[in-house]
């Protein structure tokens, strides 16, 4: 009993140690502008800032209006391009229809990359996040360093890193397994996802009130039990909205892989445009790409908001 309480005390002391060091080192904690007179609004803003800092960016706030505007831009661009079209040229929509299978295949690629990068990054991030709240000082230190390292690196640089340094094939037990470009790009995007997920985990664990640890201790739970049975279950709710927002950000970032030559939608759109060689098609085609992204990201952003509102009572 006494040993358990002792362990727990060390555990929560460790948590505070992590917190204070992390704050000193990288200002992850809500650097609140805690002026009591300003409390409600200022705290909310500081909290949002801290959340955005952990989650890889401020929340996407897509509304149906955005979709309407995008569609309008698309329609107007089509009309303008149509008006500019010379005699004998096929209509803009017919051209788009011709390229549609190619573009959609590219978009599926974007989605596949985002899904794989998210799942890989999340798994690695959960481990890294758990390591950040470890009781072993060395583990905490290393985990914190890795997290900060990958959070400070620009996404594009990490993408380049994986594209150029991962081998194009590996030999396992005499078998040669090729690693295609897009897989490497997936790893490149998974790295920043990992770092942000790790931060989301740490932020969620720290947001659980100390009273929860104390009441678990008074019921003679040990640290591991407290963590897995009491703290982490409460964390999942808090982690879900930022995690989904991170996914939306990641999906939008998959267009970066076009810079390193992955045949995703931006690359394919560029190819289609150069094959058609009609400058007027530029705007309608790219507007169409944005519409696709909107159609995919809007429900996610929407759902994120709903979950956030639903779980807001915890605060």
């Amino acid at each position: 009993m006494r040993r358990a309480a002792d362990r727990l005390w060390r555990g929560s002391a460790a948590r505070t140690a992590v917190a204070s060091r992390a704050r000193a080192w990288h200002s992850l904690a809500p650097a609140a502008t805690d002026l009591p007179v300003l409390l409600p609004a200022a705290t909310r803003l500081a909290r949002n800032a801290a959340k955005a800092r952990r989650g890889g960016g401020p929340p996407l706030r897509l509304t149906p209006a955005h979709g309407v505007v995008l569609l309008a831009v698309f329609a107007i661009a089509c009309g303008v391009a149509q008006a500019q079209a010379g005699a004998g040229q096929p209509s803009v929509l017919a051209t788009l229809w011709k390229w549609l299978p190619v573009l959609l295949r590219g978009f599926v690629f974007n989605l596949a990359i985002s899904a794989m990068a998210m799942s890989t990054g999340t798994l690695a991030g959960l481990v890294l996040g758990y390591a950040q709240i470890s009781q072993v000082k060395a583990v905490r230190g290393v985990a914190a360093f890795v997290t900060h390292f990958f959070r400070n690196a620009p996404w594009l640089v990490l993408l380049f890193y994986c594209m150029f340094l991962l081998p194009f094939q590996v030999r396992v037990f005499g078998m040669t397994i090729p690693i295609p470009d897009w897989t490497k790009a997936t790893f490149g995007l998974a790295l920043p996802v990992m770092a942000n997920v790790a931060e989301i985990v740490r932020g969620a664990v720290q947001s659980i009130p100390t009273a929860q640890w104390e009441s678990a201790a008074s019921l003679a739970f040990n640290r591991r039990q407290t963590m897995w049975m009491i703290i982490l279950p409460q964390c999942i709710k808090r982690m879900l909205p930022p995690w989904m927002n991170l996914y939306a950000i990641l999906t939008m970032s998959t267009v970066l892989t076009s810079i390193v030559g992955v045949a995703e939608i931006m690359t394919l759109t560029g190819r289609a445009l150069s094959a058609e060689n009609r400058p007027g098609l530029l705007l309608p085609f790219y507007a169409f790409v944005l519409v696709l992204f909107f159609l995919y990201c809007y429900p996610i952003a929407r759902w994120t908001l709903r979950l956030e509102a639903k779980y807001a009572v915890d605060r």
């Binding site: 502008t33 002026l35 200022a42 803003l45 500081a46 401020p58 620009p154 996404w155 594009l156 810079i259």
Partner: peptide
């Protein structure tokens, strides 16, 4: 007062901006 309140979010944004300069590569 507003400046102090804004600073955490402003910092996030400026750090993000510096990371985004890499896109000028494109």
């Amino acid at each position: 007062l507003a400046f102090r309140i804004s600073l955490p979010a402003l910092n996030n944004n400026l750090v993000n901006l510096v990371k985004t300069t890499t896109l000028a590569y494109a």
